[in-house]
Design a protein around this nucleic acid. Structure first.
Lengths: 229, 229
DNA sequence: AAGAAATGATAGTTTTACTATAATAAATGG
DNA sequence: CCATTTATTATAGTAAAACTATCATTTCTT
């Protein structure tokens, strides 16, 4: 019954305030996530509606509303899931790596998704979700209800990831005066510069040659280590 | 008729693709801008509608639609106006300053709006517009139609400002490898860290004590000059 | 196989995002 | 300063978005 290769089952947990019914637990829920990712990537979050998703899925609006209160909750769910997964991958990729400088290098590679790792949930398309986070991620918390949602823990995954990176920075240089700022800026900058390279190239020195992230990797390393040292 | 103090009249010009009728030319147009800023600041761009604005103004939806195609165009208009104004203020504040290092310091102060200067348009509330740019600014270009709107020149003010800063950076250190990236990151970081300090303090080392920007100023200077030198 | 729970089908409400048209008010140019 | 163009308002209407409600039908549990 069991193969010789151990099946490592990872479940990314998302704050239960974000959904009405846990989408990871049911077939329909997974379909909402899977096709939701596809549709948001395709038409953007502002054009995305539950009706369109229902049509695409051959399901109904009402069914989707039983999982998520509205499309904003779905977006925050996806973004949360993504950042939790990044955090897991950093641990995974930097396992047994003691040198904090090497840990940080691995962290950067992980943030920009250079070290590929299949999603622990087959129905979640890694690349599409990454696109969504780059393009729509900040809309999760640039909203009027930010304080209320922050209290409800909507942004803990992102904050936890920031804290993890800040700790690595401090391990490299305990006297660095702005670890949290550098950490959050690293995350924001990675996404922004990627977005600029594709859409507003005047705003970046990056040249995006089809999915090749090596230049971005180099640039982020330059910025981060120049600052820390 | 003329006072002894010269009235310096500055007109911030905005790409005419952004409006149907120039709001700066008419009474109603100015009212749309003025009250639009107030309302967007108050309820956020997602809750903002032209109907609500019309009610607030005691005007009608149809009238507002004669000035702007939709609320997105209004947002881009406001953001464009803001960045053009920042650019003007940098020139104004750094007039006759030759040392590029001092120019950059003045630029940073200008970006975070530390050197106060009354708006050249009395009906535009400097602080409210700044709030809007910090909170909603990135939504101007994180949209599906980004490439089309970029072609139509919607983002030239922001790109021009980035270019101006990049040039100052190069004047300080002609060998700096990422001037455009550092420039755009400076702009994004200033706004982000300000936003984090207020709403997601775990993501920043900044402590915002009521409108005091000195800490942010110090931080940005640290980052920028550490990188350039 | 019965009962509970989830999903689907259908329909309805309010709000948003517009467009159209006629009436009134304001500006302007001769 | 009157006539005409132009801007604004009032009113109304449409299609889609953002939900909520109800009941029938599957599917899942035990």
């Amino acid at each position: 019954m069991t193969s010789s290769i151990m099946a490592v089952s990872v479940q990314i947990k998302v704050n239960s305030n974000l959904y009405l019914r846990d989408p990871q637990e049911t077939k329909l829920g997974k379909k909402i996530i899977q096709q939701g990712i596809q549709l948001i990537d395709e038409i953007g979050i502002e054009n995305f509606t539950f009706r369109k998703l229902a049509d695409k899925m051959s399901s109904t609006e009402a069914s989707i509303y039983r999982y998520f209160e509205n499309k904003h909750a779905l977006l925050v769910y996806l973004v949360s899931w993504y950042w939790e997964w990044v955090r897991f991958r950093i641990d995974f990729n930097a396992m047994n790596v003691d040198d904090p400088r090497r840990r940080l290098k691995i962290t950067i590679k992980t943030i920009i998704d250079t070290i590929r790792l299949a999603t622990p949930a087959e129905y979640i398309d890694r690349d599409l979700l990454h696109n969504i986070v780059v393009k729509e991620g900040m809309k999760a918390y640039h909203i009027n209800q930010v304080d209320k949602e922050n209290e409800m823990g909507y942004f803990t995954p992102y904050k936890a990831l920031g804290q993890k990176i800040a700790n690595i920075i401090l391990a490299i240089n305990p006297d660095f005066p702005y670890p949290k700022t550098l950490a959050s800026n690293l995350l924001e900058m990675a996404n922004n510069q990627m977005y600029f390279a594709e859409h507003l190239p005047k705003l970046t020195d990056l040249k995006m040659k089809g999915g090749d992230m090596s230049e971005l990797d180099e640039m982020l390393n330059f910025f981060v280590f120049k600052l820390i040292d």
